[in-house]
Amino acid sequence: MVLAAGDYAREVCKRPAWIRGIDHRIEAQYPGARDLTKSSSTAIAAEKAGVGKGGVDVAEVYAPFTHQELIVLDALKLPAGAEVNPSGGALAAHPIMSAGLIRMGEVASRIHAGEARRGVAHATSGPCLQQNLVCVLEGA
C-alpha cells in the first residue's frame, strides 16, 4: 500500500480512501485473564476510530476462525446493512503477517472503485484476539 497526505493524495489518486480514524489496543496475554466471548480491545479501538460516526458500506475483519468473526462484529457495533468480508476474508487467504493489511487494502480498493463510500477494516494479533486494530476509511 502507498500512503500519502492531503493534496498529494488528491493529485495521484482519482478517489483516495482517507483514513478517518485508526486505533490499536492490546489486552492481557493470558487467556484466563480475559472474557474470551468478548473482544474489549476491539470495542475500544472501534470507539476511538469512530466506527459509529456514520454508515458503513463494507467491513473487512481479520477472523481466521469463524467464531472470531462473530466476536469481532459484536465489538465493532457495525450499523445494519454493512457487507462483511466480500473478499472471502482470512478464511479464504491467510498469509498471517499480511492478513491485516489485506483487510485495509480490500476496503480501500472498494472506495477507489466507487463501490463503497465508508468502510471499516480490522486486524488482530496474538492468541484469542489479544490485540486488535480498527481503521475507518472514507471516500471524498
Binding site: D23, H24, R25, I26, E27, A28, Q29, Y30, S40, S41, I44, Q130, Q131
Partner: peptide
Amino acid sequence: ADALGALGKPM
C-alpha cells in the same frame, strides 16, 4: 503487555 501496563492501550 501486562508487565508494561499496556492493557487497554495502544502497544
